[in-house]
Design a protein around this nucleic acid. Structure first.
Lengths: 116, 116
DNA sequence: GGAATTCGTTTCGGAGGCGTATTGTTTCCC
DNA sequence: GGGAAACAATACGCCTCCGAAACGAATTCC
């Protein structure tokens, strides 16, 4: 239990974050895309389309499209699994890692600015 | 400076939150819509289309559309300003207040589950 | 080896968002 | 009072996403 704060603080943090994401532009990722991206970068590999779809409770085309979009942005890449060539393994990229890292720093920064 | 945590904790919190928003369905609000909604419920009224657009750095139709969508969901309502009938004042609703409250509780809950 | 299964992708029609430009009201200013 | 300005909403063409279904390729099962 490292982090404890009140709902009002949580909401202000979330507000500031959504606000920053909107104002910065660039990042128009949906909640689904963000969930996929963070799952890939925070949870242990390997990540497959099927696994991500099951984990998020969405259909496979949703994952395919999210990977298309974020792949186009360079935030991740795909590779066929050599041991079972039906599978596609999602791979992290340097650009994606930097993006996620920057996101984490941004949240911390907003949290530090919160009133007590 | 009430809240301090590490980027890794911040990211996990954000991941869990995006994850919950996706899995719960219902809420498919974009970052822009969330930013508008939270601004309305966290910052002091009155809120006009023009003011919200300026604050978020987007065009007015973006705000109009966001208000359309969230109004349809019952999360807020609109009313013409009687003192200046060109303005539209955004009003909070009970349903919207409950939604925001639940969102805050959800964030706090996720934060409490964070590893130290 | 051939049928059934699994996996990711693509297709289809539909819904909703985007930015720009325009419209209809209302108010301001002289 | 009449023209200019301010406000929110709408029209337009474009783009992306959605879920359901169909698809091709690879694997598994007898």
């Amino acid at each position: 239990m490292a982090i404890e704060f009140r709902p009002s603080q949580a909401l202000k943090l979330f507000h500031d974050l959504a606000f920053a994401l909107v104002r910065d532009g660039e990042t128009d990722l949906s909640a689904r895309q963000l969930a996929v991206l963070l799952t890939i970068y925070l949870e242990a590999p390997p990540h497959t389309v099927r696994g991500l779809a099951a984990k998020l409770g969405v259909t496979k085309p949703v994952i395919t499209r999210a990977l298309d979009t974020m792949g186009r942005l360079g935030l991740l890449s795909r590779r066929r699994d050599d041991s079972d060539r039906r599978n596609v393994v999602v791979q992290r990229t340097v650009k994606g890692a930097l993006y996620v890292e920057r996101l984490g720093d941004m949240i911390v920064e907003k949290a530090n600015g919160l009133p007590s």
